[in-house]
């Protein structure tokens, strides 16, 4: 165990989450979840809908508590969560949204973030009624301003159209490579997970349990063309087969 805890990873050990349903019966949502999040990797958790992904990500982000198990780390990690509905605040401009995370940020640091998320020139725009991609970029900028150790993404691409999704996939991967900030992605979309991640955990539902993991062998510096490669397809098929064997194949998403 000691060797599993070092300054380069968060080790999640035997996490369980239980709750009582409306009749008072105990329901197990997450059961003995064990995984490690490394600071030089994008880690994905693929799971069907209703398997407890959001609860698990909230526990990792430190905004919910498990009923069993715990998180072991060498030093305290600052994890920023970007939820499914990109939570850029519609009463703040782009800059005010970013400053919400770090009020003292300005000048070069602020401009660097705006440039990185592709919103330079949009400083005073307000995200009210703007596209999901625009709001995702703001959420990403705000997370970056907070100087996080990990950025946790809880299905942020769910409500985007295909073109916006593709742009946001590439943006996320590019930010990971440029800034060396690791991401943890919860998703039910296999293509998304394989493109974005270096390590993929497979989780089944009822209760949520890790059934396997895959080390992604795609090159680190990848672009959207790699989605059509045979290597990509092999990884995707092996993930599908694993889910089929565990009868958790339904409600997974196979398209972009």
């Amino acid at each position: 165990m000691g060797e599993l805890i070092n300054e380069n990873r968060i080790y999640i050990k035997d996490i369980s989450k239980e709750y009582k349903d409306e009749f008072g019966f105990k329901v197990s949502l997450l059961k003995n979840i064990t995984l490690s999040l490394e600071i030089d990797k994008v880690t994905s958790i693929i799971a069907p809908e209703g398997s407890g992904k959001t609860s698990l990500l909230k526990i990792i982000a430190g905004i919910d508590n498990p009923t069993g198990g715990g998180i072991n780390y060498h030093h305290h990690f600052k994890n920023i969560c970007i939820p499914t509905i990109s939570s850029s605040f519609p009463w703040m401009t782009v800059v005010e949204n970013i400053k919400f995370a770090r009020p003292d940020i300005s000048g070069e640091n602020l401009n660097a973030i705006l440039e990185l998320i592709g919103l330079d020139g949009y400083e005073n725009h307000i995200p009210n009624n703007k596209s999901t991609g625009f709001r995702y970029r703001i959420s990403l900028g705000r997370a970056l301003a907070a100087n996080p150790d990990f950025i946790i993404l809880d299905e942020p691409f769910l409500n985007m159209d295909i073109e916006t999704k593709e742009e946001c996939y590439q943006l996320t991967r590019d930010i990971f490579l440029q800034k060396n900030i690791p991401f943890v992605l919860g998703t039910n979309n296999i293509t998304e997970a394989v493109f974005l991640s270096d390590k993929i955990y497979l989780m089944k539902k009822n209760p949520g349990e890790i059934i396997d993991f895959v080390d992604n062998t795609l090159p680190k510096n990848r672009n959207l063309n790699s989605i059509t490669s045979s290597q990509f397809n092999e990884i995707r098929v092996s993930i599908e087969e694993t889910f089929k064997m565990k009868e958790s194949y339904k409600s997974l998403n196979f398209s972009i």
Partner: peptide
């Protein structure tokens, strides 16, 4: 939206800050 509150929580905002900057503004 719970997402707004969770985002603010992960950024280390206090209970009063979440009320004043998120809940109040959203309700306005």
């Amino acid at each position: 939206p719970q997402e707004f509150i969770d985002s603010a929580k992960t950024m280390g905002k206090t209970y009063n800050e979440i009320i004043a900057q998120i809940i109040w503004k959203h309700s306005l």
